[in-house]
């Protein structure tokens, strides 16, 4: 292919046009292709489509089409055996809002997201600080921290479920032997306890990513800044508060938003460990949606829940995009 140079400029100009550069009505027009002479056809306004077309198709196929299908299903009446009976209007949404479990599940989802993300961030601050310091064996510790990230979440969750199992679990055996408890406990059977264990596992699998984002942030802070602070007689705490924290802000922001989205969508941990039970006591909106579909076979209301989930995610993504933009402006 000889027209590599020309073609590679086409999408570039197109996007630059969008970003509010020089007024270029047709992308590529009025701009001589750099290097080579003009090639007829290279400037056809649809040429960029050739290059971005596959990507657009992909996005349309895997993002927009499912979203449309989901929204359509949420206003359809589908029988429990799976036969589409027609349009249902807003009935599915009414059914969903009539679910006595919906509000507690929503509240729990908020607690779940805020709790897990906050604890993850706090612990990650410490870990990142530790890994940023020089000490023998640092490389080993850094590698070790990756393990929970590298392991499959489902695997981690199932391992924890068996550790905490009432009849055969290791947790009970060990704690009984150590005299910490006097009778075996059903860790995942009491909603309050189960909730804490679920959160712990969620934190455990979120730590590596978060810590590495923060660690990367810490490493960009030049040492001279601290030297200057030292010269000015700032205490360690003061330096941390007034130098480290402000300079870490972008990293924290990114880590927060990505974690929020991840934790909100987190299905395997809850499903593998408690299936949202007992009853709905450890359900979040994600597992609740799945139960509506798989257990109650209520396709419509489940799709309505999916739409609701989707809207919440969109809001979070908007926050994310704003955060990223804020970084660029900075």
């Amino acid at each position: 292919m000889t027209d590599t140079a020309t073609s590679s400029t086409a999408p570039a100009t197109a996007s630059r046009g969008k970003a509010g550069g020089p007024p270029t009505g047709k992308p590529g027009a009025g701009r001589p292709a750099p290097g080579r002479g003009k090639r007829p056809g290279a400037e056809h306004p649809l040429t960029p489509l050739l290059w971005i077309g596959p990507a657009l198709l992909l996005i349309a196929g895997v993002v927009f089409w499912p979203v449309v299908e989901m929204a359509l299903t949420s206003v359809r009446e589908v029988s429990r055996s799976g036969v589409i009976r027609g349009w249902a209007g807003l009935e599915n949404y009414e059914k969903l809002f009539d679910e006595p479990d919906l509000v507690p599940v929503l509240i729990r989802t908020v607690i779940w997201v805020v709790g897990v993300v906050a604890i993850t961030l706090l612990l990650s601050f410490g870990l990142a600080q530790l890994l940023n310091a020089r000490f023998p064996g640092r490389r080993l510790v850094r590698w070790a921290l990756i393990v929970p990230w590298a392991a499959s979440v489902v695997m981690t969750a199932i391992v924890w479920r068996w550790i905490l199992d009432f009849f055969h679990g290791m947790a009970n055996t060990i704690m009984l032997d150590l005299g910490l408890i006097d009778a075996p406990r059903d860790w995942l059977g009491e909603p309050g306890l189960a909730w804490l264990w679920l959160m712990w596992v969620a934190v455990f699998v979120s730590l590596p990513f978060t810590t590495y984002v923060l660690l990367a942030g810490l490493q960009t802070i030049p040492g001279e800044v601290y030297e200057a602070a030292q010269v000015d007689g700032a205490s360690r705490w003061r330096a941390y508060r007034d130098i480290t924290l402000p300079l870490l802000k972008p990293a924290v922001l990114v880590a927060t938003v990505i974690n929020v989205i991840n934790v909100f969508n987190s299905f395997p941990i809850i499903w593998a460990m408690t299936r949202g039970g007992p009853g709905h006591d450890t359900d979040t909106t994600t597992t609740f949606m799945f139960k509506l579909l798989r257990l109650d076979k209520e396709v419509g209301p489940s799709a309505a829940m999916a739409v609701l989930n989707f809207l919440m995610i969109v809001v979070m993504v908007l926050f994310y995009l704003r955060a990223v933009k804020w970084k660029e402006v900075d």
């Binding site: 895997v62 984002v213 990367a216 990293a251 900075d330």
Partner: peptide, 23 residues
């Protein structure tokens, strides 16, 4: 700022992985 770019690249990679999985 290198670190945030890296982080957002990770985010994008997650998105890309998601797309591949969906595909």
């Amino acid at each position: 700022m290198r670190f945030s770019r890296r982080a957002s690249r990770a985010g994008r990679r997650i998105a890309a992985l998601g797309a591949i999985a969906a595909l």
